[in-house]
Simulated assay, not measured.
Amino acid sequence: MTTMTEAVRASSTGGTVKKRASRIRSGEKRPAAAFYWMVWPAVIAFAFFHTLPVLIGIFFSFTNYPGYGDWNFIGLSNYVNLFKDDRVLAAYGFSFLYAIVATILTNVISLAIALGLNAKIKASNFWRGVYFVPYVLAILVIGYVFQFFFSNSLPKILSGIPLFADNILTNETWAWTAIVGLGVWQACAFSIIIYLSGLQTIPGELYEAASIDGATPWRQFTSITFPLIGAFLTINIVLSLKGFLQVFDQVVALTNGGPGTATESVTLLIFRGGFSGGEFAYQSANAVVFFIVITIVSLLQFRVLQRREADF
Rank of each mutant, 00 (worst) to 15 (best):
T2W: 14
R9P: 03
A10Y: 10
S11G: 05
K18A: 14
A21Q: 11
I24W: 13
P31G: 06
A32K: 14
A32G: 15
A33C: 07
W40H: 03
A42M: 15
P53Y: 11
F60L: 11
T63K: 05
G69V: 11
D70W: 12
W71E: 02
N72H: 13
F73Y: 15
G75Y: 04
Y79C: 00
K84H: 15
A91Y: 05
Y92K: 05
L105H: 07
L105E: 02
S110L: 06
S124A: 12
L140C: 07
I142A: 15
Y144M: 14
Y144C: 01
N152R: 09
S153F: 14
L154K: 14
I157P: 03
I157M: 14
S159V: 04
I161D: 05
I168N: 00
I168E: 00
T170P: 00
E172S: 12
A178E: 04
G181H: 06
L182P: 01
A189E: 04
I194P: 01
Y195D: 06
P203K: 12
S211Q: 13
A215W: 09
Q220W: 10
T222G: 10
I229H: 03
G230T: 00
N236Q: 01
L241H: 03
G243C: 09
Q246C: 11
V247I: 14
L254S: 06
T263K: 07
T267H: 00
R272N: 13
G273E: 09
G274D: 03
G277K: 09
A281Y: 05
F290H: 08
I292K: 02
V297N: 03
S298F: 06
S298A: 15
Q301P: 00
Q301N: 00
Q301D: 01
F302T: 02
V304D: 01
